[in-house]
Structures are given as structure tokens and as C-alpha cells.
Simulated scan of single mutants.
Amino acid sequence: MAHSYEDEIPGEEDIPDSKKKHPVLRESLFLTRKKFMGLVAERYQLKEGRTVIGREDEEEPSDISLSGDDTISRRSIEINIVADEYGFDYILKVLNASNPVKVNGKEIRIGEKKYLDVGDMITIGHTNLRFDNR
């Protein structure tokens, strides 16, 4: 039986204890994409909860659809912003990726999760996105 994006993946509950809680407000979180030698930036605001990021596709659009890079899968990654009594967790999960997904140069495989910190660089396909609050 194939897994859908909503299925639990065995072992995903074993996220490292080194995660950090962040007090940053969810309204001020962005993915920033630099284009044209870093001179023009596109900013995508993230919301609390699940945000799916992928290649622009009219039939199955993502919450954030990126154009101009055919090496990105249609529903490549998700970022979950989860609030609790201590602050916020920022969790990236790879949903589908024909090409490697990296966080700060380290490859993250399909189904794996990675806690993010403000300033982390996410690479999907040939596109770099900075996870930031400015």
C-alpha cells in the first residue's frame, strides 16, 4: 500500500532531542529566494501549521509554488510551525524529491524530518531558500 502525504512514516517520532524551542512569532517567518545574482529576492510568508512547498503546478498547487526550476518536485517539502507552551518548533519534512533536498548542505531524505533554526539554508532542486524572520 502506498503512503499518502498524511500517513505516519515509521521512525519519524524519533526526532533528535537536540531540537530547540523558538519564541519567534509565526507572522514574521519567511522563506527568501534570491534570484539574479542575489539582487532580486522573492519572499514567501509562512503560517502556523503545515505549509507545502513545491514546483509551480496548476493541477496540484502547493501552498508555496516556485517557478523557474524544473528540478523541484511538485510537492517537495513541508514546513510545520508548531506552537506549545515553550515557544515554536520549525520542522521541515521531505515529501517527495527527485533531486536532493538539503538543509545547510546536509541531504535530507524522503520522509525524514529536520528541525530548522532561523538562518538555515534550504536547497530544493537548484533553488536556495533562506528560512528567516526578516
Score class of each variant (00 low, 15 high):
residue 53 I to D: 02
residue 81 I to D: 04
residue 56 E to T: 14
residue 60 E to H: 14
residue 75 R to N: 14
residue 85 E to R: 11
residue 35 K to M: 12
residue 92 L to R: 00
residue 45 Q to L: 09
residue 47 K to G: 09
residue 65 S to T: 07
residue 114 K to R: 15
residue 49 G to E: 07
residue 52 V to G: 00
residue 109 R to M: 14
residue 83 A to N: 13
residue 105 G to P: 03
residue 88 F to Y: 15
residue 80 N to V: 09
residue 30 F to Q: 01
residue 72 I to E: 00
residue 34 K to F: 13
residue 110 I to M: 09
residue 38 G to Q: 07
residue 88 F to A: 09
residue 34 K to A: 13
residue 51 T to E: 01
residue 86 Y to R: 13
residue 81 I to K: 05
residue 46 L to H: 02
residue 67 S to A: 14
residue 41 A to N: 12
residue 48 E to A: 11
residue 36 F to S: 12
residue 37 M to N: 13
residue 85 E to A: 11
residue 108 I to N: 01
residue 80 N to Y: 09
residue 86 Y to V: 09
residue 114 K to A: 08
residue 98 S to C: 09
residue 113 K to T: 10
residue 36 F to W: 11
residue 91 I to C: 03
residue 86 Y to I: 08
residue 102 K to P: 00
residue 77 I to T: 01
residue 114 K to D: 06
residue 39 L to M: 15
residue 37 M to P: 03
residue 70 D to E: 13
residue 97 A to Q: 05
residue 88 F to S: 10
residue 95 L to I: 11
residue 106 K to H: 10
residue 32 T to L: 09
residue 72 I to V: 12
residue 72 I to Y: 03
residue 104 N to M: 08
residue 62 S to R: 00
residue 55 R to P: 00
residue 103 V to E: 01
residue 64 I to R: 04
residue 99 N to A: 11
residue 29 L to V: 12
residue 41 A to D: 12
residue 79 I to Y: 04
residue 111 G to A: 07
residue 45 Q to H: 10
residue 73 S to C: 07
residue 112 E to Q: 15
residue 70 D to F: 10
residue 37 M to I: 11
residue 79 I to D: 02
residue 69 D to H: 09
residue 91 I to W: 03
residue 60 E to V: 13
residue 78 E to W: 02
residue 78 E to G: 05
residue 60 E to K: 13
residue 102 K to S: 06
residue 115 Y to Q: 13
residue 39 L to F: 15
residue 100 P to T: 07
residue 57 D to Y: 06
residue 56 E to Q: 14
residue 76 S to F: 04
residue 92 L to I: 07
residue 79 I to L: 04
residue 68 G to E: 07
residue 61 P to E: 05
residue 29 L to Y: 01
residue 42 E to Y: 08
residue 82 V to N: 11
residue 58 E to R: 15
residue 90 Y to F: 15
residue 109 R to L: 15
residue 100 P to G: 04
residue 77 I to S: 00
residue 58 E to K: 15
residue 61 P to W: 07
residue 46 L to A: 06
residue 36 F to P: 02
residue 39 L to G: 03
residue 61 P to V: 05
residue 31 L to D: 03
residue 96 N to K: 14
residue 90 Y to L: 11
residue 44 Y to K: 06
residue 102 K to C: 08
residue 77 I to W: 05
residue 31 L to T: 02
residue 28 S to C: 10
residue 98 S to N: 15
residue 65 S to G: 08
residue 85 E to H: 10
residue 60 E to F: 13
residue 33 R to V: 09
residue 78 E to T: 06
residue 111 G to N: 04
residue 75 R to L: 11
residue 104 N to T: 05
residue 79 I to A: 02
residue 98 S to F: 14
residue 52 V to A: 06
residue 32 T to W: 00
residue 107 E to W: 05
residue 35 K to I: 11
residue 77 I to P: 03
residue 49 G to F: 06
residue 87 G to F: 07
residue 73 S to P: 05
residue 111 G to I: 00
residue 87 G to K: 06
residue 76 S to C: 15
residue 102 K to A: 08
residue 50 R to A: 01
residue 112 E to W: 05
residue 67 S to D: 13
residue 82 V to S: 13
residue 94 V to Q: 01
residue 106 K to E: 14
residue 107 E to K: 15
residue 72 I to N: 01
residue 76 S to H: 15
residue 64 I to L: 04
residue 72 I to W: 03
residue 83 A to T: 12
residue 34 K to E: 12
residue 114 K to N: 10
residue 74 R to G: 07
residue 59 E to V: 10
